[in-house]
């Protein structure tokens, strides 16, 4: 997947290889989430392009892009059960209730949600809600995946465990993946490549190791130090 956004105030070019999750990091207000919403189609891109395989996505409506999104606070549908949340994408693509339910079962099992299938989102822990959000996004069979601060809504004590599980699941996803975060731990555990965004512009790109070896800006220097603490 290749994303070019030349709009003011955030302009960025990202090359995301399938199976090599890319972390988009930067301080608050750097424009990370803006880029994410632009890829998902919630914000227009005036100047630029999004190539996914041989498809150009910029002109497509969000529902036609086939890009799965895991939102920061997960945004589960509060009036639907876990099973219906996960089945939602299939239902919207025209699957009947029963086929959608059946197709959802393996996803529930894979994300350890089978016992929670009948629960409503307000009855879930943060870690469980994150698994539902990921299962819901993947069950719709997206061609690319976006995650917006996937750990931010979770309690600090459980983050390491949930992050390790998330890393496993991301490895299983074959398409391009972009993770927006400002956490060094997320970058180290989840991403293969890193792009640093500061005040709307890319200040460094490379692997986590290359960033640690030669931080290009004071922000990157602070970011890599935080990991080593």
């Amino acid at each position: 997947m290749r994303i070019e956004r030349a709009d003011f105030p955030t302009s960025v070019t990202l090359d995301v290889r399938a199976g090599q999750p890319l972390a988009l990091v930067g301080p608050n207000g750097a424009g990370k989430t803006t880029v994410l919403h632009a890829i998902a189609g919630h914000l227009p891109i005036m100047i630029g392009s999004i190539q996914l395989g041989d498809r150009e996505l910029v002109e497509l409506a969000p529902e036609a892009r086939r890009i799965g999104v895991v939102f920061q606070d997960f945004l589960l549908f509060p009036h639907l059960t876990v099973a219906d949340n996960v089945a939602y994408g299939l239902r919207m693509c025209g699957s009947g209730r029963k086929p959608a339910r059946a197709a959802t079962l393996p996803w529930l099992e894979r994300f350890d949600l089978s016992d929670l299938a009948g629960r409503y989102p307000h009855e879930l822990s943060g870690g469980q809600a994150q698994r539902v959000a990921l299962a819901r996004a993947l069950a719709a069979e997206p061609e690319a995946l976006l995650l917006d601060e996937p750990m931010a809504a979770l309690d600090v004590e459980i983050r390491d465990e949930v992050r390790a599980q998330l890393a496993d699941h991301l490895r299983d996803f074959a398409g391009p993946t972009v993770i927006v975060t400002h956490s060094a731990a997320d970058v180290a555990a989840l991403a293969a490549d890193v792009v640093v965004l500061e005040r709307g512009a890319v200040t460094q790109r490379g692997t986590w190791e290359s960033l640690r070896a030669a931080p290009a800006t004071p922000y990157v220097a602070r970011l890599v130090e935080r990991r080593e603490e």
Partner: peptide, 21 residues
Amino acid sequence: DRRVELAAASLGATPFQVFRT
């Protein structure tokens, strides 16, 4: 919280499907 409508759209729901469901 209208942002769940964005979540629905990202799962392939058309604007009318988002409204209805």
